[in-house]
């Protein structure tokens, strides 16, 4: 398979068959917290896609050009999380300077992203699965899009659900988890279309 085809298959697998949220359970905290409204979900989703794509490439470079040659692989957790935190901080400052509107739309979500486990998780998966730089980029972007698809679907369902009567113990987290389970079942339907090595 050519390089391009491999990257594309990684990308689509990350969106559908290996959805970061529904099969790897990453980014659940903000998924439960920010899925009440479609608008919020969309803002957070856009920030996640951007940060995920960039940090997966940055961490790939750090890992292969700094940590591996120096034999410091065991320090990867610290390096990854520092890269992510620093990147988020820089992006926040740039957006603040460039566009007030964009800052107001995305700004509040950016600090949340540092502790979103999906971001760190993607960097760790990319190392474990030994991706090339292009595949890592595709995987980062695909995971971000997959996460957005899941959270948007959830926010849409929850907006409709406001008026429905839910058993008391299930309100909030409980019913959200059940819906996520049903969504995970639906996404399993994509299995077999493509596989992620």
């Amino acid at each position: 398979m050519s390089e391009f085809a491999t990257v594309m298959s990684v990308l689509f697998a990350a969106i559908f068959t290996n959805n970061i949220l529904l099969t790897n359970y990453l980014g659940m905290c903000s998924f439960l917290g920010a899925s009440r409204e479609v608008k919020t979900a969309l803002g957070l989703g856009a920030a996640v896609v951007f940060v995920l794509t960039c940090t997966s490439a940055l961490n790939w470079l750090c890992y292969h050009y700094i940590l591996v040659p120096l034999d410091l692989v065991y320090l990867r957790f610290i390096v990854f999380i520092v890269v992510i935190a620093a990147f988020v901080q820089v992006v926040e400052m740039i957006i603040e300077r460039l566009s007030e509107r964009l800052y107001n739309a995305l700004g509040i979500f950016l600090p949340l992203i540092t502790v979103n486990c999906a971001i760190l998780g993607v960097s760790l998966f990319m190392v474990i699965r030994e991706y090339t730089l292009a595949e890592a980029l595709g995987y980062g972007f695909g995971s971000g899009v997959g996460w957005v698809v899941a959270i948007l679907a959830m926010a849409g369902i929850r907006e409709k659900m406001v008026r429905s009567k839910i058993p008391r113990g299930l309100e909030g987290a409980g019913i959200t988890l059940i819906i996520a389970g049903i969504m995970a079942l639906a996404f399993m339907g994509f299995n077999g279309m493509m596989t992620l090595n």
């Binding site: 058993p167 113990g169 299930l170 987290a173 988890l177 059940i178 996520a180 389970g181 079942l185």
Partner: peptide, 23 residues
């Protein structure tokens, strides 16, 4: 098989929360 896969995890946790909160 569903229990060791992703959906089972979601359902189990939801059920747990429901039982604990409800009872």
């Amino acid at each position: 098989a569903i229990m060791v896969m992703a959906p089972g995890a979601f359902f189990m946790l939801a059920l747990f929360i429901w039982i604990v909160k409800g009872l």
